[in-house]
Design a protein around this nucleic acid. Structure first.
Length: 914
RNA sequence: GGGCGUAUGGCUCAGAUGGUUAGAGCGCUGCCUUCACACGGCAGAGGUCCCAGGUUCGAGUCCUGGUACGCCCACCA
């Protein structure tokens, strides 16, 4: 029987590396010679430089290239999260991406054609922000394009090398050009950085979310949604970030605890004629600056204290505007005074009340976050005092207006007591640093079930169809879907993004008619409505009565990101590729973007294709930030991935990442990285030893010694366990079982067979007439074990395994077959008792030597082993190996019942003569 | 306020369907300058398995109720 050839996959059979490992040499050549061509084992193997060497080799050989001819069932496609191009790499990214890469490498070795593209998420706010800081500019879309525009700064510094203080306005087109200039340079660096972590992505499939293809896909998706009625525009109160001057979606919110204060304000009851009766109603508010925007007071319908007031009107303090007192279940009797003022709009509850109670709109906050400067008519109607009061706050920031209002209230005796400081959650845009305001504006929305229970049910069902790893992560999806309270707002008043591909017809007065939406032909995509012309119009009609105007807004970055499966798989661009890769097999991602990226992607695929976008999602855990530990700041030793990669090597960092269970939060632990490095070094040295012992021919037919058969028995179990684990996407378990085997292999088996493998055992003394066969058995077993272990480790530590592989094996280990099927051809015994007992006895001998404080190499004249008969029999079959490894002259094996007190009785009598 | 997750030696973590003296690595201690590896090897010490009840012949493992931490969601008066 011959060794099954490691099946090197056709496309990857190209020799890689430097001059050895030629594919033609195997398996033919080794079968015709006594011994394979000598492996090229360095005298001093080292991890240094392996990353650069093998990254280049892999790129040259195309070992990770996707084979576009593979049928769908053979393909494993991965929807890699496109990282935001930021110039540096975060620990969390390394963590998650490496875990996915291990799965990808397993799938590839297991025979799947892995479609594993990478993308850069370069559209959107982060890039805008960086362009502003880097070039010292900001976008003013009202400006005309200046072809000769020169930004005032580079790297945030002006011509004299000083930090710029004020940014210079430029046109939208100039601004976009600068953004692209920035990311183009960054992405070159970024790719280099990312290649450093050894992802087996096919870099020729790299995409950008701002590229023409992505913009076309995003716009096509939008237009299809529009045609089917899944996209619509509406004038509605919208969460608004005042510093970025853009609307934001529910998914982009976060609460932050902020200090505030309850102000107790006196509203005045009036008689039918509007004359104050002298009775006051007190409400408590944290936002007195919105008093001018008050449209009603509200209390719970069952609240006896306020029931007499329902239907009455009261006069607001300071302004004297008359507002009704209304009832609504959302009002909480035990919060504050139990009655609240409704403003347009102080918070989202106000929006609910305003909508459900059909209250008027009296907005006073402008989009820049300041109080509107023109005096509103309802203030004017309230009289000259109200106007004077309003003028005192007009144009002020929210903060300034609040101070002013407190003064006015105090002056009028309408502020009861001192404001009571509290801490309360305030909504922020997750990327912003000022509280969100709510303004009314026309925006575009995608339906997502937030306002349609039937559709919400549909998306909930999609969530149950998806396979979640770990399983409990599906709750996060479910809760998000259950908690949706509005459709997905997708328009953004930003500049560097995918333009919403529509125009509006202008009426005879030159005003846009938003009901007459003009759309481009799909073949014209991508379009920019600010410079392109809608079908049926001339460019000269832009902005003139009867002509058209382009939509100025861009799409939410998630509106494009939610199409990454379509973008990567070539939807509408490469139908052949699309049918081979979509729906995808795997979406790996972080838990924090289930509500955005994952959910939105499900929504888009459902609308567009009527399917899930992928079969399953793996959700990685968090890294507990080292900043939370006391060390980093005070000690000043902030750890960056790059520094760790340089210090310990990529394989070591990958080892740490893949040690963490799927979906499990993990504390950053540099110690674990050191262990990874040690493992990599151990792989080099153990391999060197095995190969220098003549272990080059992994031929199971040569394996005869009981100890060797026992080792392969255990290895077969390890292969099976690792395969099972990987099939369940539990890479960490696969690593664990492989690693455990490897250390035992080094510490026990290697020591036991050392002498035999070298072939330096003396026939006359051992009385072993079959020394040659025994030596060949040891060597073959070492070769099989090494060959197998390298492949089992390859998904985790790709560099060191490839290095060792190149010493003696053809092709790339990453194109080699996963060894799942090979143990079937091994001479495997029913159990591994021989190895277990031999290792135990060797351990006992070591223990005795350690207690005696003598060298492990010091000779022992007599070792007496008393144990159960079957265990003694097993030991007998490895007698020579044990005496060799233990440097024992006389091994006495005494078959007896194990002693009651110790169970098994291995008794070692150390009788050393040195 | 609701949901999810986590709580195991100094540290980081394993411990399917409950079953002999609870495991690993790091760190610590002692020993071995061993010819693959001192970026090594051998050995040792170290644990009320968060708390309180319960089910069971038997619970780290199941149930109930707490506590602590993390994350997500929730209408910011």
């Amino acid at each position: 029987m011959r060794a099954p050839a490691p099946s090197t996959r056709g496309r990857a059979a190209t020799p890689i590396g430097s001059g050895h490992g030629a594919a033609h040499r195997y398996p033919v050549a080794i079968m015709t010679e006594d011994r394979a061509e000598a492996p090229q084992v360095p005298d001093k193997p080292s991890l240094d430089g392996l990353e650069a060497k093998w990254d280049a080799a892999w790129a040259a050989s195309g070992v990770y290239a996707f084979d576009r001819t593979a049928p769908r069932e053979q393909v494993f496609s991965i929807d890699t999260p496109p990282p935001t191009v930021s110039g540096n790499l975060h620990m969390g990214s390394v963590f998650g991406y490496v875990q996915t890469d291990a799965v990808a490498r397993y799938q590839r070795m297991a025979g799947r054609d892995v479609f594993y593209p990478m993308g850069w998420d370069d559209n959107g706010l982060p890039t805008e922000r960086r362009a502003q800081n880097y070039f010292g500019v900001h976008c003013d879309p009202s400006l005309a394009y200046d072809p000769d525009f020169t930004p005032p700064a580079k790297e945030g510094l002006d011509a004299e090398g000083k930090k710029i203080k004020r940014t210079l306005a430029c046109s939208r087109r100039n601004f976009v050009e600068l953004c692209i200039e920035l990311i183009t340079a960054d992405e070159v660096v970024f790719e280099t950085t990312w290649r450093r972590i050894g992802l087996s992505v096919d870099w020729t499939l790299l995409y950008q979310t701002i590229s023409d293809d992505s913009r076309a896909a995003s716009q096509r998706g939008f237009l299809r949604n529009l045609a089917r009625g899944e996209a619509y525009q509406a004038e509605a109160p919208t969460l608004w970030d005042v510093s970025f001057s853009t609307a934001v979606a529910q998914a982009e919110l976060e609460d932050r605890e902020r200090p505030g204060a309850y102000h107790r304000l006196a509203f005045h009851r009036t008689d039918d004629a509007g004359t104050p009766t002298g009775e006051d109603v007190f409400i408590e508010t944290t936002r007195p600056e919105l008093l001018a925007a008050c449209v009603a007071l509200v209390a719970h319908p069952d609240d006896g204290r306020y029931q007499p007031l329902f239907g009455e009107t009261v006069a607001t303090p300071v302004f004297g505007v008359r507002v009704p007192v209304v009832a609504h279940e959302l009002a909480e009797p035990d919060k504050g005074s139990g009655i609240a003022m409704i403003c347009t709009f102080g918070d989202t509850t106000d929006v609910t009340w305003w909508r459900e109670l059909e209250l008027p709109t009296r907005a006073i906050i402008a989009r820049n976050g300041r109080i509107r400067t023109e005096t509103p008519d309802w203030i004017t109607a309230a009289g000259p005092d109200a106007v004077t009061a309003y003028e005192a706050i007009a144009g002020k920031t929210v903060f300034g207006a609040k101070e002013q209002m407190v003064e006015l209230l105090t002056a009028g005796g309408e502020l009861s007591g001192e404001p009571k400081p509290i801490t309360h959650p305030v909504k922020f845009y997750e990327k912003g640093d000022k509280p969100l305001e709510i303004v009314t504006s026309r925006q575009w929305y995608f339906r997502n079930g937030g306002r349609d229970p039937g559709l919400r049910e549909m998306f909930a069902k999609r969530g149950t169809e998806l396979e979640w790893i770990p399983e409990h992560m599906r709750h996060r999806y479910q809760h998000w879907v259950d908690g949706l309270n509005g459709d997905w707002l997708v328009s953004r008043q930003r500049f560097f993004g995918v333009p919403i591909p529509v125009w509006y017809a202008l009426d005879a007065d030159g005003e846009p008619d938003h009901d007459r939406v003009l759309v481009p032909d799909e073949s014209a995509l991508p379009v920019d409505p600010s410079s392109d012309t809608p079908p049926g119009y001339e460019a000269s009609q832009r902005g003139v009565p009867g002509g058209f105007v382009g939509e100025a807004d861009v799409l939410d970055t998630w509106a494009t990101s939610s199409l990454t499966p379509q973008i990567a798989c070539g939807w509408g661009r490469d139908d052949d590729l699309f049918t081979r890769t979509f729906p995808m097999d795997l979406r790996p991602q972080g838990p924090e973007i289930i509500r955005t990226w994952l959910f939105d992607t499900v929504v888009r695929a459902h609308f567009e294709h009527g399917t899930l976008p992928w079969k399953r999602a793996t959700i990685n855990g968090w890294i507990l930030d080292p900043d939370r530990k006391k060390m980093s700041k005070s000690m000043g030793n902030v750890v960056t991935p790059i520094a760790l990669l340089e210090r310990y090597g990529t394989d070591a960092v990958r080892y740490w990442s893949t040690s963490a269970r799927p979906g499990t939060d993990t504390a950053f632990d540099e110690g674990q990285i050191k262990i990874g490095r040690r493992l990599a070094i151990k792989l080099l040295n153990a391999s060197r030893f095995a190969l220098n012992s003549g272990a080059t021919e992994p031929d199971p037919a040569l394996v005869s010694a009981p100890l060797d058969r026992a080792l392969l028995t255990r290895l077969a179990d390890v292969v099976a366990a690792a395969t099972r684990a990987f099939d369940a996407f539990d890479y960490a378990r696969a690593l664990e079982v492989t690693e455990a085997f490897f250390w035992d292999f080094c510490n026990d088996y290697l020591e036991l067979v050392k002498g035999r493998a070298y072939g330096n055992r003396d026939d006359t003394e051992t009385g072993d007439a079959t020394t040659a066969a025994a030596t060949a058995s040891a060597r073959a077993t070492l070769a099989i074990a090494l060959d197998t272990v390298l492949r089992l480790f390859a998904p985790f530590v790709p560099f060191v395994t490839e290095e060792v592989w190149s010493w003696w094996r053809p092709g790339s280990v990453h194109a080699a077959a996963w060894p799942a099927g090979e143990p079937a051809a091994w001479p495997v015994d029913a159990d591994d008792a021989v190895l277990a007992v031999a290792a135990e006895v060797l351990g006992a001998i070591r223990h005795a030597k350690s207690d005696a404080k003598v060298s492990m190499k010091s000779p022992v004249t007599t070792v007496t082993v008393t144990d159960a008969p079957e265990r003694c029999a097993a030991l007998e079959r490895a007698r020579a190996d044990v005496t060799d490894a233990g440097v024992v002259t006389d091994l006495v094996i005494d078959a007896a019942a194990p002693r009651a007190d110790t169970g098994s009785a291995i008794e070692v009598t150390l009788d050393h003569t040195g």
